[in-house]
């Protein structure tokens, strides 16, 4: 039986579906956050060389992974919206951007917090931190461009083109920054010991899953408000129970 995927790409069907899904994602994210933080900050043993400071990686690593991955997700949705002219994809892209930027910011912040006890400086020009900073700039560019164009359709399309150019550029930027870093013999974050202890691994994955679910829940919430805002003049919106009230 063929499933009509395009049915779910229409805001009219997606809006109630997202509404039903959000509580599940939000609740499981909250549970996993609690479990992950408990595992990471209480159960997991302290690191041989880094002591207790290393525990910030349970926040730092998942947020940096998500910040990078969400950029690709955003660019993917934006490209879909640009090529197939599907409204929902473009709305998804603009819903992903702030969450991605938030994770990039958290990754930078926690990286700085980690750097202070490790290297004695809040900021070191480590290749990964620098790339993360540039990634944050790319997110901000996307958001700023989208915000400064009044016509939503032009904004979607222009920002989509920027996101695609950005995602093509990300590997080049990452490579060049890494190269620059090795030339200048900068400090690089390295894990002590090649194998992580099992509890450490478990808490890391729990936190990663928690962040994922959080991202999905918040993006769905944001896309729902974008749908309401963009489609405010359509009939189905005015017939929604929450709008009638």
């Amino acid at each position: 039986m063929a499933i009509n995927w395009f049915k779910y790409s229409a805001p009219t069907t997606f809006y109630p579906l997202a509404g039903k899904l959000i509580p599940w994602f939000a609740a499981s994210s909250a549970i996993l956050f609690a479990a992950g933080l408990y595992l990471g900050f209480v159960v997991a043993p302290s690191d041989a060389t880094q002591g207790e400071f290393y525990r910030i990686i349970y926040i730092h690593v998942p947020s940096s992974i998500l910040s990078m991955f969400l950029y690709l997700v955003m660019a993917g949705y934006a490209a879909l919206g640009l090529i197939f002219n599907t409204r929902l994809s473009s709305m998804m892209a603009s819903a992903v951007a702030p969450t991605g930027a938030l994770f990039a910011f958290i990754a930078l912040w926690t990286g700085a917090l980690w750097g202070k006890p490790m290297w004695g400086a809040w900021w070191v020009w480590d290749a990964r931190l620098t790339s993360e900073l540039i990634l944050l700039f790319l997110y901000l560019g996307f958001i700023a461009l989208h915000a400064s164009i009044d016509d939503p359709r032009r904004a979607d399309r222009a920002a989509a083109l920027l996101a695609i150019v950005g995602s093509v550029n990300v590997p080049i930027i990452y490579f060049s920054v890494k190269w620059w870093n090795t030339l200048h013999q900068g400090s690089t974050i390295k894990f002590t010991g090649t194998s992580m202890q099992v509890t450490m691994q478990q808490s890391m994955f729990t936190m990663l899953a928690a962040c994922w679910l959080y991202a999905i829940a918040i993006i769905l919430m944001r896309v729902r408000s974008i749908i309401l805002e963009r489609e405010r003049n359509t009939k189905w919106i005015t017939e929604l129970a929450e709008v009638k009230k």
Binding site: I134, F137, L138, L140, G141, A144, L145, S148, I149, A158, L161, L162, V165, G166, N169, I172, I173, F175, S176, V177, W179, W180, L183
Partner: peptide, 29 residues
């Protein structure tokens, strides 16, 4: 992309400067 937008100049730099980083790195390198 920023054609005809208010504050286009600053926005332009915000969009373009991050993309130019590799050029800067290889040129100074």
């Amino acid at each position: 992309l920023t054609l005809g937008l208010r504050g286009g100049g600053v926005l332009l730099s915000l969009l373009v400067l991050p993309l130019c980083i590799p050029v800067l790195i290889f040129g100074t390198g």
